[in-house]
Nucleic acid binder design. Structure first.
Length: 648
RNA sequence: GCUGCUGUAGCUCAGAGGUAGAGCACUCCCUUGGUAAGGGAGAGGUCGAGAGUUCGAUUCUCUCCAGCAGCACCA
């Protein structure tokens, strides 16, 4: 048999007879390597050690020290071991798929009875038993027919469907550990004992549609996390606990920012603290936008269906709209109105008042527009996904030639705003023309080029999402990652060739003829609600002074200091700071603790020493100690710090 | 919308077929204490809503509403 040549990662070459397996190579290199090996890479592709080598290649043996490969295998094998455990415990369960995901894995099952949280512990126990068996993992290539026949016998309808989905000509691979068998592309570990028995945990059960389609039956998905060792698992669970602590819903309650109640699902009741935060952010955005050439407007929230029919929303978006019908008893005429789900049609109405010249363009109309959308009940989530919200919306009416400059201008604004608010990193997604679209290819060419060139000119990284643009134009989406690692699409920038035409927007060009302007829909924060949710989690409630709803509490240590406390509060307020007095009959320890828990950034403690010296003892949130400073000095320092970034 | 779970005092949660309990918060009293909980007393609940079973339901059953996790959705 002819030899094949393997190039190892260190550059050395070794020759073996064709038909040698990865494991045999490992054994040939060293006995200990054979023992610690978990998988191999053949020309960069991750494979089982049992893979038969049949050609010259770059070859590498992986051990548990190779994080990427080790974690992939551990998690994937965990999914299989879980599936086996479940089928051993409840043989009537049908298996489907079980992929690796961030930090772990899941497996989707079909079973008449629901898995309970208590079942998870039972399954975990069974999984440990399987791991302890150290069952060797065996694999074979099967023909399509044989696989289908097998799954018909074992009554696994989902697996039969999967076989049907695998492209013709591709091999089907079967895996076994013990008697348990599954269709899988692999690779897998050498034996079940290689999965660390103390580094995985089953986390939750939830429904998931078969193949992600809501027309399909719902399966039961069990989620698990798995790591290389117990410490990594512990660290991950700890991270989850920390993430839970900064959940904006929890902080919203603790910091008395807002609440949502049954009578108005998905609508926010802002409390004084939360509304202060909201207003500080809104005032900041308003200044930034006006400085950038926007004009602020305000448009109606309840608008006759005729406008929504004209804009196309009635046809395309009706199921997400709140419709209001006027009570016939009180109306002469029956009208059907909708709460606006978007501001754009109203903005065109403002644009349409009076004839516009090309000299008026670009015309930037901004509105903190209150919108309502009927979101499905299961999709709502605190402030992140609500039914009533306010966008920092604006529409730029411009010529096609102006798209590029406006794009660049907007991205610059957005970058500055995100930086000011503590987000240094965001991703840009550039979505190009979909198959079904309005407008000529020439117009799309021009718009796509304008958007892309703007990103390039600013030297920002972006990724292109071909075909994901709206039917009316290409778009840019701006995504932030929050503290819990979730990605939120906040900012957006969309070119629109359709709506201005539908709603008869026009301008007189240099040539004296009427033209249709391009409309650029854009939002920086997206909605105040969602953005504040992200902001709360990003700062874990510990806002920089300029954003903090409660900035300073001045607390007396003894009641003889109360008058001076009130004087200090007055001085701080006069300097435009948000300050409160705490002259309750409580110990300073108690006051410090309470205001620290409430995440007030600055506590000024006042005892008789401070009264006499006309000073204050300043404690910053999170600090252990305090600093004594002259009153005037503190006012000046805090005032500077509390100045919004755009006014510094 | 779908699957599962949950809904008891302002908050976090315990509880049982015979109309309820803890801690914190709140009110009052004592305490004037120097940087993350001083002590005592008191008040506070139609046990998410409706229907059914039962002598009796907050507890069991059903329906609805809301929340949570995930899925689907987010033109």
């Amino acid at each position: 048999m002819a030899d094949i040549s393997l190039t190892l990662p260190d550059g050395n070459k070794r020759s073996y007879p064709t038909g040698t397996t990865g494991l045999e190579v490992a054994a040939d290199i060293s006995k200990s390597l054979a023992k610690s090996a978990i998988s191999c890479s053949i020309d960069g592709a991750h494979r089982d050690l049992s893979t038969v080598l049949s050609a010259d290649c770059d070859f590498a043996i992986h051990t548990m020290k190779d994080d990427a490969q080790a974690l992939e295998l551990i998690r994937h094998d965990c999914a299989h071991i879980m599936a086996r455990a479940v089928q051993e415990l409840w043989p009537d369960t049908k298996v489907t798929i079980g992929p690796v995901i961030a930090n772990g894995f899941y497996y989707d099952f079909d079973r008449a009875e629901a898995f309970s949280v208590e079942d998870l512990a039972v399954i975990e126990k069974k999984m440990r038993e399987i791991i302890n068996l150290r069952d060797p993992v065996r694999t074979e290539l099967w023909s399509r027919e044989r696989a289908i026949k097998y799954f018909q016998n074992t009554e696994e309808p989902f697996k039969i469907e999967l076989v049907g989905m695998i492209p013709k000509g591709e091999d089907l691979r079967m895996y076994w550990h013990g008697k348990w068998q599954d269709l899988c592309r692999g690779p897998h570990l050498v034996h079940t004992g290689q999965v660390p028995a103390d580094a995985f945990k089953l986390m939750s059960v939830a429904g998931a549609y078969w193949r992600g389609d809501s027309n399909n039956p719902m399966l039961q998905r069990i989620y698990g996390v798995a790591f290389k060792n117990k410490n990594d698992l512990k660290a991950h669970l700890h991270m989850l606990e920390e993430a839970e602590k900064r959940d904006h819903r929890k902080l919203g309650r603790e910091m008395d920012l807002f609440h949502i109640q049954e009578e108005a699902p998905g609508m926010v009741f802002w409390h004084p603290n939360g509304w202060t935060l909201y207003r500080v952010l809104q005032d900041y955005m308003r200044r930034r936008q006006i400085a950038d050439g926007y004009q602020e407007i305000n448009t109606p929230q309840v608008v006759d269906r005729k406008l929504w029919e004209a804009s196309g929303h009635w046809e395309k978006y009706r199921e997400n709209m709140f419709i209001t019908e006027i009570d016939e008893e009180h109306a002469n005429e029956k009208r059907v109105n909708a709460l606006k789900p978007m501001n754009c049609p109203c903005h065109v109405q403002v644009y349409n008042q009076g004839l516009k010249s090309y000299r008026d363009l670009p015309l930037r109309l901004a509105e903190f527009g209150s919108c309502h959308r009927y979101e499905s009940s299961g999709s709502m989530h605190g402030l992140m996904r609500v039914r009533g919200f306010t966008q920092d919306d604006a529409h730029i009416f411009c010529t096609r030639a102006q798209i590029g400059a406006e794009t660049k201008k907007f991205i610059e604004l957005l970058t500055r705003v995100y930086q000011d608010l503590g987000f240094d990193k965001f991703e840009i997604k550039f979505s190009t023309r979909p198959d079904v679209r309005a407008g000529s290819d020439a117009v799309w060419d021009q718009a796509e080029e304008a958007l892309e060139n703007a990103i390039k000119a600013l030297d920002l990284p972006y990724e292109t999402d071909p075909g994901e643009g709206a039917f009316y134009g290409p778009k840019l989406d701006f995504k932030l990652t929050d503290a819990i690692g979730r990605e939120w699409q906040l900012g957006t920038f969309q070119a629109d060739f359709v709506l201005p035409e539908r709603l008869d927007a026009e301008y007189i060009g240099e040539d004296g003829a009427k033209h249709t302007p391009v409309m650029l829909h854009r939002a920086t924060l997206g909605s105040f609600e969602r953005f504040l949710g992200v902001l709360i989690e990003n700062y874990a409630g510990r806002f920089p002074l300029w954003l903090a709803p409660r900035q300073i509490v001045v607390a007396s240590i003894v009641s003889d200091a109360d008058d001076y406390v009130l004087e200090v509060v007055a001085a701080l307020k006069a300097a435009g700071l948000r300050a409160e007095a705490d002259i309750r009959n409580e110990k300073i320890n108690y006051k410090v603790r309470e205001h620290s828990v409430a995440k007030v950034p600055v506590i000024l403690a006042i005892g008789m020493k401070e009264v006499e010296a006309r000073s204050v003892s300043m404690r910053r949130l999170g600090d252990k100690g305090s600093k004594v400073l002259a009153l005037g000095e503190v006012v000046e320092q805090l005032q500077a710090e509390a100045t919004p970034p755009d006014l510094r």
